[in-house]
Design a protein around this nucleic acid. Structure first.
Length: 764
DNA sequence: CTGATGGGCCTTTTT
DNA sequence: GGCCCATCAG
C-alpha cells in the first residue's frame, strides 16, 4: 500500500502566481539604506551608448557588449528603468542569466537601485537560468507532460547510468563499441536542436543505433519520473508548441524579456526566447560573439545573426568602451581575437593607459615550475601589497591542470579557492545523500534508489536487487514502489529470509522518512537519514579521504538547514541546477583557481593563464576543425580580458600528461601578440617551435651513467639520416644499448636505440 | 556479500 | 596519473 503523501508541496506551488519564483529562506541583502535619491540614479554614471541601451524604446534590442563594457550594468539598469520609469510590475518581466550567481547578483543590484520605492521588493520577478526557469514551468504544467510534478532532474552521472542500461540491456550491445557517453552526446545535441525520437531520421548505421537508444532512453527517463538537463529546455519548448493555450498564458503574463550572454544560447533557448517575448517582441538581449565558448553544448553565436533576420526592426547598440583593463591588455587581447574570421569588428577602447609591464610571458620548465612561478609571483605581489589575493585568478583549459597548482599552493601554505574539478554536488557522498532525499521524494526514481539501496552496505547485493526488480516488474510497479509494499506487507514477494528482512527494513525506513518529511524541517530529515543509515560512520575509516567525505556531508547538512522552510521538491530542483561558479564564495581572501570556461563574466586584478601550449590551448581535440579552433581562440580572449591590471601568460617546456612526459610547443595564440606589448620573464623566448628547448637542455637532469657510457645528453642537438635535426630530451642506458628520446623538428618526438639510429651529434 | 587488487582505458570545456 | 570495472579471496 502506498502512503498518500506529497500533496502539501504541490499545493504550495500551484498557489503561487504564474511567474512567481520561490523565495529562499536565506536572507538576501536588500540595500535599502543607499542614501541616494530615487529615480535619478538609474541613468547616472552611464556613457552615451549605455544610456541609449538602458532607455531604448520597446521592441527588440540587441546590445553587443565587449568585455568590461558594462554589460551587467546595462542589463540591471534596464530592468530597473523598466520598473521605475515605465511602471512595469516586476512580475511581468522575465530575465535570463547564464548562472544562478549572476541571477542572484542581478536581483540584489536591482533591489539596491530601486531601494525603498519597491515596497515589497522584487516579488514575482522571474529571474534565473534557462534551466531553472524551465524546471519551474514544467513542474507547474506537469499535467501536459509524461512526468509528475515531483520529477527528478538527472545530471550527467544519472544520465550515464540510464544510458548504460539502455545500451547493455535494451539494445543488447557492447558498451565498448557503443559508448554510452558518445550516444548521450548525440542525444544531447538532438535535444538542443529540438529533435524528438520520432523526428530523427538516421542516415548512417551508427545513427540508427543512436535513434533506437534515444527512444529507449526517453522511455526509461519517463519510467523513472525524471528529466535530464536538455529535457528541461526541449520539453518546455514542445509544451509551448503543442499547447498554445499554455503558451498564451505565459505570454499574457510577460511584458518584457531580458537575456544575458545571448551568444551562448542554443536553438532550444532561442526558440524559447522567441515564444515568450512574442507577440509584443519586447526583447532585450545582451551578448558578445567574441565570448561565445559553449559551442560544444549546442550554443551558437549565430543566434545573434538569426536575431537580426528574425527581427528586421531590431535596434542594435554597441558598447565599445572598456572600463576594466589597461590599454596594453586590451591591445593584446584584440591582437588575438582579430585573427578570427567572420566577426563584427569592434573598436574597443579604454581610458586606462598601460605599459608593456602589464603582460608578462614566462616559459616554465614543467608544470611544477609553472605552478611554483605562479605562487612566487603571487606571494611577491601580495607581500608588496600590490594586490589582494582574492583579486587574483589562475586560469587553465582543463580541470586536470589544477592539480599541480593546488600542490604548489598547499606547499607554500597559501589558501586558494578551487572552482570545479571535483564539483561539490558531483561528489560521491553528496550524490549518495541527495539520492536518499530524491528517493524519499520520488520512489519511482530508480537510478537514485539503486544508488542507495546498498549504500552503506546492508546486505542487498546484485542477486537480491535482481529479484526485487523482477518481482516489481511482474507486479507492474517500480522497484521503489515494491520496497514500500514490502514494508507494509513483509510477507509479499518471493524473497529468502535474509534478503526479505534487508529489503523490508529499507522499505520501512523509506516509508517512515516519507511520512516524517511532511512534519519536520529538511535539515532534521537529513540528520535522521544520516543517523538511521549510519552513513557518516560508513565513511569514518580513519583516512583523510574519509574525513573529507564526512565534512562534505556535514556541509550539505548546513545547506539543508538554510532551506528549512523550502519544500523538498524545490530544494532538490535548486540543488540539481547549481553550478560551480554559483558557489564561488566572495568571503575568503584567497586566489581563485578555475577553468577558462568558468571564468566567463568574472574579473580580477591579476590573471595568470597557464598551460598556453599547442594541444592544451588550443586543445588537441580542436585541431582539425576551424570552427572549434575559432572557439579556442575566443577562450584565450575571454581569459585575457578578465584581467584588470596584470596578465601573466605561461607555458611549459615539458609537461606530464597521461603520466608521461610530453614536450609542448607554445600556443600559436601567444605568437599573435606583438612583442612590444610583452615583458619576457626569465626563460621566456620568442619564436615558435622546438628551438626554445635549448634553454632547458642544461637545466634538464643529467642522466646518470649506469655502467655503460652514454653517447647523448639531453639538450644536445643531433641529426638523424631520416628524421633530420632534433634535440635530445632524454637518454638512458637500456640493456647494453642506449635509448635516446629526441624531438625532431619535422616529425616530433621519437624514441630510438643509439646503436641503430646512426645519429650524429651537432656542434653548437 | 564485501573489500582488495590490478588492468585497461582515457580526459575539454558544464547547465 | 586516476577512474572505472572485472576478478578473486575471505
Amino acid at each position: 500500500m502506498l502512503p498518500v503523501v506529497g500533496q502539501a508541496g504541490a499545493l504550495s506551488i500551484l498557489a503561487q502566481p504564474i511567474w512567481e519564483p520561490h523565495r529562499r529562506a536565506v536572507p538576501c541583502c536588500v540595500a535599502v539604506k543607499d542614501g541616494k535619491g530615487i529615480g535619478v540614479d538609474i541613468l547616472s554614471d552611464l556613457n552615451a551608448a549605455q544610456r541609449q541601451a538602458v532607455t531604448a524604446p520597446d521592441g527588440p534590442v540587441l546590445v553587443l557588449a565587449g568585455p568590461g563594457s558594462g554589460k551587467t550594468r546595462v542589463l540591471t539598469r534596464r530592468a530597473a528603468w523598466l520598473i521605475q520609469e515605465r511602471g512595469l510590475p516586476p512580475r511581468r518581466i522575465v530575465a535570463v542569466t547564464f548562472t544562478n550567481k549572476a541571477a542572484r547578483e542581478m536581483r540584489s543590484r536591482i533591489e539596491s537601485l530601486l531601494g525603498e520605492v519597491l515596497g515589497e521588493g522584487l516579488r514575482g520577478f522571474t529571474l534565473g537560468t534557462f534551466h531553472a526557469i524551465c524546471a519551474r514551468i514544467l513542474r507547474r504544467e506537469h499535467t501536459h507532460l509524461p512526468v509528475s510534478a515531483n520529477y527528478a532532474i538527472y545530471d550527467s552521472a544519472d544520465q550515464r547510468a540510464v544510458m548504460k542500461e539502455v545500451v547493455a540491456v535494451d539494445l543488447n550491445l557492447d558498451e565498448k563499441r557503443y559508448s554510452p557517453d558518445k550516444i548521450l552526446a548525440r542525444v544531447s545535441s538532438l535535444k538542443n536542436e529540438l529533435i524528438v525520437p520520432d523526428d530523427f531520421r538516421p542516415g548512417a548505421y551508427y545513427d540508427e543505433i543512436v535513434s533506437r537508444a534515444y527512444r529507449r532512453y526517453q522511455e526509461r527517463l519517463v519510467a523513472n519520473d525524471a528529466l535530464d538537463f536538455d529535457d528541461l529546455l526541449m520539453q518546455t519548448v514542445l509544451l509551448f508548441r503543442d499547447h498554445p493555450d499554455v503558451l498564451a498564458r505565459y505570454q499574457h503574463a510577460t511584458d518584457y524579456v531580458l537575456v544575458d550572454e545571448f551568444q551562448d544560447t542554443n536553438s532550444a533557448q532561442y526558440a524559447l526566447v522567441r515564444m515568450l517575448s512574442s507577440p509584443r517582441n519586447n526583447l532585450f538581449c545582451v551578448g558578445d560573439e567574441d565570448q561565445s565558448i559553449y559551442r560544444w553544448r549546442g550554443a551558437d553565436y549565430r543566434n545573434i545573426l538569426r536575431l537580426r533576420n528574425d527581427y528586421p526592426d531590431l535596434t542594435i547598440i554597441l558598447l565599445e568602451q572598456n572600463y576594466r583593463s589597461t590599454q596594453t591588455i586590451l591591445d593584446a587581447s584584440r591582437a588575438v581575437i582579430d585573427k578570427n574570421p567572420q566577426r563584427t569588428p569592434k573598436r574597443l577602447f579604454t581610458e586606462t593607459p598601460g605599459t608593456s609591464a602589464d603582460i608578462t610571458i614566462y616559459e616554465a620548465f614543467d608544470e611544477h615550475d609553472e605552478a611554483q612561478f605562479v605562487v612566487d609571483q603571487l606571494a611577491g605581489m601580495v607581500a608588496q601589497q600590490e594586490v589582494e589575493p582574492g583579486q587574483c585568478a589562475i586560469m587553465y583549459r582543463t580541470n586536470a591542470q589544477s592539480r599541480a597548482l593546488e600542490d604548489a599552493f598547499i606547499r607554500a601554505g597559501l589558501p586558494y579557492k578551487l572552482v570545479g574539478a571535483t564539483r561539490f554536488y558531483g561528489r560521491r557522498e553528496i550524490k549518495d545523500v541527495l539520492a536518499y532525499l530524491r528517493t524519499i521524494h520520488n520512489p519511482d526514481d530508480t537510478v537514485s534508489l539503486l544508488r542507495i539501496i546498498n549504500t552503506p552496505p546492508r546486505a542487498i547485493g546484485e542477486k537480491t536487487i535482481q529479484a526485487l526488480e523482477s518481482w516489481a516488474s511482474s507486479e507492474g510497479i517500480t522497484p521503489g514502489a515494491a520496497l514500500l509494499r514490502l514494508a507494509a506487507d513483509p510477507g509479499a514477494g518471493p524473497f529468502s529470509g535474509k534478503a526479505r528482512s534487508a529489503l523490508a527494513g529499507l522499505g520501512a525506513l523509506l516509508d517512515a522518512w516519507r511520512q516524517m518529511r511532511e512534519v519536520i524541517p529538511l535539515g532534521d530529515l537529513l540528520k535522521l537519514i544520516l543517523d538511521e543509515t549510519g552513513y557518516l560512520n560508513y565513511h569514518n575509516d580513519g583516512t583523510e579521504a574519509g574525513q573529507e567525505r564526512i565534512d562534505n556531508v556535514l556541509e550539505l547538512l548546513n545547506v539543508a538547514r538554510e532551506y528549512e522552510d523550502v519544500p523538498l521538491p524545490e530544494f532538490l530542483a535548486e540543488v540539481a541546477l547549481v553550478s560551480d561558479v554559483d558557489n564561488l564564495s566572495e568571503e575568503a581572501n584567497a586566489a581563485t583557481l578555475l577553468t577558462l570556461h568558468a571564468a566567463k563574466g568574472l574579473e580580477f586584478d591579476v590573471v595568470f593563464m597557464v598551460g598556453l601550449e599547442e594541444g592544451i590551448l588550443p586543445h588537441s581535440r580542436s585541431q582539425d576543425d576551424p570552427e572549434q579552433m575559432a572557439e579556442e581562440r575566443r577562450l584565450m580572449y575571454v581569459g585575457m580580458t578578465r584581467a584588470r591590471r596584470k596578465l601573466y601568460l605561461i607555458y611549459t617546456f615539458q609537461r606530464s600528461q597521461w603520466g608521461e612526459s610530453v614536450l609542448n610547443i607554445r600556443s600559436r595564440f601567444l605568437d599573435d601578440i606583438p612583442d612590444s606589448l610583452l615583458t619576457m620573464a626569465r626563460g621566456a623566448t620568442t619564436g615558435v617551435g622546438y628551438r626554445q628547448m635549448t634553454t632547458w637542455g642544461l637545466k634538464a637532469e643529467e642522466p646518470r651513467p649506469v655502467g655503460k657510457q652514454i653517447q647523448f645528453r639531453s639538450g644536445q642537438r643531433v641529426v638523424h639520416p631520416r628524421f633530420g635535426e632534433g634535440i635530445v630530451v632524454e637518454s638512458r642506458v637500456s640493456g647494453d644499448d642506449e635509448e635516446v628520446t629526441v624531438v625532431f623538428e619535422a616529425s616530433g618526438l621519437k624514441r630510438l636505440m643509439a646503436s641503430f639510429a646512426n645519429m650524429q651529434a651537432l656542434d653548437e
